[in-house]
């Protein structure tokens, strides 16, 4: 399996830029294993990313890779997918990238149900710029820009995606790497907009400041706080308060955007007799 993962990496780009204990590599590996399992032709596979630590992942992958501007990965990806629907497009974003500066693109990609698979690396912080709070930093936690504790409520990415119209929504943590891989596979197979939230650790920018220990201890925190969808069904809201529900959270049916546009083409050509 390792060699299969390696074959999709631009290993000449290593060592990577991520800090010791960072979970981003685990998400990257899960994505590569998922693409391997999906059997996608690397030449027809596109990985688009935004700006931030996680978005550097695109550069390490031996596919058609596009590292865009902050927050805009989904908009670039929309252009690629609409222009060439035959390409398989994955979009890698961080939590701030996807839901703060890119929040508008996120809800509209979901609303269109365009066939993209979005993977959000949620480390609860802006890591690359050194630990400022993001829309996913839990209330009360500390960040360089919230030295007295964060007073903002955080988004629930899954609820946001579902409410905006995504047709596949799932969540896993880097501790549950195998589950993450399976969820990415299922998301990619969904003909529509799929969102997979990957809870990942940033020991340097977030964990240290919030006394969560090193990378390993943060992985164990993920293990302790994660409950599966099935377990969660039997728990009270009170019991679920500090838990992370993992697994397939939502599956829906809706027309896919590029398929709908194909119908527009047929209608237009019929009308104009072309």
């Amino acid at each position: 399996m390792l060699s299969q993962v390696e074959s999709h990496l631009r290993s000449d780009r290593f060592p990577h830029i991520w800090c010791p204990g960072c979970g981003n590599g685990i998400v990257l590996a899960a994505l590569v294993r998922a693409i391997e399992e999906l059997g996608y032709d690397p030449d027809k596979t596109v990985v688009v990313s935004g700006i931030g630590c996680s978005s550097r992942a695109a550069g390490y992958l031996d596919f058609n890779t596009l590292h865009t501007t902050h927050g805009r990965a989904l908009a670039f990806a929309t252009g690629i997918k609409l222009a060439r629907p035959e390409l398989e497009v994955f979009v890698l974003m961080g939590d701030g990238d996807a839901t703060a500066i890119g929040g508008n693109h996120f809800i509209h990609a979901a609303r269109r149900n365009i066939d993209l698979t979005a993977i959000i690396f949620n480390n609860s912080i802006y890591g690359m710029t050194g630990g400022q709070y993001s829309p996913l930093t839990p209330p009360g936690k500390r960040a360089t820009t919230a030295p007295y504790g964060n007073i903002e409520r955080s988004f629930d990415i899954a609820e946001l995606a579902k409410g905006a119209g995504a047709t596949y929504v799932a969540r896993a943590t880097t501790y549950h790497a195998t589950m993450l891989e399976k969820l990415i596979v299922a998301g990619a197979r969904n003909k529509g907009f799929s969102v997979i939230e990957a809870i990942t650790a940033c020991p340097v920018g977030y964990g240290r400041r919030n006394k969560m220990g090193n990378g390993l201890q943060m992985l164990l925190w993920q293990k302790e706080h994660a409950v599966t969808v099935k377990q969660a069904e039997k728990m009270s809201p009170e019991e679920l308060r500090d838990k992370i529900v993992i697994g397939e959270l939502y599956k829906g049916e809706a027309p896919e955007y590029t398929a709908m546009y194909q119908q527009v083409i047929e209608r237009a050509q019929k009308t104009t007799g072309q």
């Binding site: 688009v48 805009r72 929309t78 690629i80 997918k81 222009a83 009308t271 072309q274």
Partner: peptide, 23 residues
């Protein structure tokens, strides 16, 4: 669409520019 091309009205100006570059 009559020429087999694609048109999309994006959510904002920034996204429009991004989609054009992607295409």
């Amino acid at each position: 669409p009559a020429l087999g091309g694609k048109f999309i009205q994006m959510e904002d100006e920034i996204a429009s520019m991004a989609a054009v570059i992607g295409a």
